[in-house]
Amino acid sequence: MALDKIGIAKRIAQELRDGWYVNLGIGIPTLVANYIPEGIEVEFQSENGVLGMGPFPFEGEEDADLINAGKQTITTLKGAAFFDSATSFAMIRGQHVQLTVLGAMEVSQNGDIANWKIPGKMVKGMGGAMDLVASAENIIVAMMHSNREGESKILKKCSLPLTGVGCVKKVVTELAVLEIKDNKFYLLERAPGVSVEEIISKTEGDLVVPDFVPEMKL
């Protein structure tokens, strides 16, 4: 069965490594913070200026001066730090943040990502996404394999305006874990009960399928 949002977040959480600083985007990526594997320590950075982000506050304990990049009220953990936006993006551009997890409308087999603009529709802006994808060494995209019309979003070439080029290395969808290298998608894992045929049929980009594709362990 295809994964739900929580399943995708759980699978991405398995990619976290001890000692990493991690920036999580809005939506499914935010959920990753709830499933940190036992025995490892990671610290979350939010680009509006906080390291050591904790869970949402209890009702009545919200602080208007303490939010994340999605403008949601948050808390901080012991050892947290605040800083200005230039310092925040120095952390990102300077590759001090080890992992970026973000959503996408499309990815292509050369690692391009599109997630900020649909021509003809209201443009809200790219926020920090272009800075994040241009610099992160390690980017995982959390997304749905196809759109509501059933068209694949895992493409040979993105059709939407790009956010970054050649930057995505791994994609986790409700159906599969894909790695991007040598201008191809490599099928690493499939969601429990999802067939390789279904993944092939829903992937427009070139997909390399090994003889044995293990199921994700969640």
Binding site: F56, E62, I67, T73
Partner: peptide, 10 residues
């Protein structure tokens, strides 16, 4: 100091 996305846990 208006809050744009008041988000809490129970």
């Amino acid at each position: 100091k208006r809050i744009e996305q008041r988000t809490v846990r129970t």
